[in-house]
Simulated scan of single mutants.
Amino acid sequence: MAQQRQHGGNRRRSLGAGALVGIGLMAGIDEIVFHQILAWHHFYDRATPAIGLLSDGLLHAAELVMLVAGFFLLNELRGRGTLVPRAAWAGGFLGAGGFQLFDGVVNHKILRLHQIRYVEPLWPYDLTWIASALLLLAIGALLARRHGRAHG
């Protein structure tokens, strides 16, 4: 805590608030692009279309709660003068990548709530989905590491 005050910011809270925004943003992109515009799937595709739409609405509501909570926390940190922007950016990328990886591995493959797209072969879509998650996580880790070195 003393180290955070010494550097004029709260790195952990900035990282966490950024992660909430990143999760909400990636969930929103997934919901808008893949569920609504492209209509490739619903959050839960193993029931009726009405249940699929309901599951999309619940995902959308959770995404909005995370975005609002994340932005409120960022604003609170900024108001107190303890926001660490690079840590918040790192958290945003880590949150987005974490959501993408969780969705691709747990929701798509383990729980089979839905697939990215119902086509054959499916592996190029899975590979692209997981690769994009790993890229976002790598960017977030790089930003977090650079900040840690500069203020460690």
Rank of each mutant, 00 (worst) to 15 (best):
R11E: 10
Q36N: 13
A61C: 12
G95Q: 03
A90S: 03
R112W: 03
V21G: 11
M66L: 15
G16M: 13
R149P: 05
P124I: 01
H108R: 04
L54S: 12
S14C: 06
V119F: 01
L135G: 02
H41F: 12
G57Q: 15
Y44F: 14
S14W: 04
A47V: 11
H147W: 07
M66P: 07
I32Q: 13
A90H: 02
Q6I: 11
L122M: 06
L94V: 05
E76T: 11
T82W: 02
G104Y: 03
L38D: 10
Q6C: 05
H147Y: 11
I29M: 15
R13A: 14
I29C: 15
G9W: 07
E63H: 12
G95W: 04
L137M: 04
R117A: 06
D45Q: 12
L67N: 08
G91Q: 04
L38G: 09
E63W: 07
L113P: 06
R13W: 11
L143P: 03
L122H: 06
G98S: 05
A61D: 08
W89A: 02
G95I: 04
D103K: 00
W129R: 04
A87Q: 01
G52N: 07
A141N: 01
S132W: 04
P85R: 00
Y44G: 09
E76I: 14
A90K: 01
A61V: 15
G148A: 10
Q3R: 07
H151C: 09
P49D: 05
I116A: 03
I116F: 11
G104F: 01
T48W: 06
Q6S: 09
G18I: 11
R149T: 11
A144E: 03
G91Y: 03
A87K: 00
G104N: 04
L134D: 00
A133D: 00
A138P: 02
V68Q: 06
G8D: 06
L113S: 09
L135C: 04
Q6A: 11
G79I: 07
G140I: 02
M66I: 10
E63Q: 12
G70R: 02
L111G: 05
R12E: 09
E31F: 10
Q36T: 13
L64M: 12
G28S: 15
Q100A: 08
H41N: 12
A131N: 01
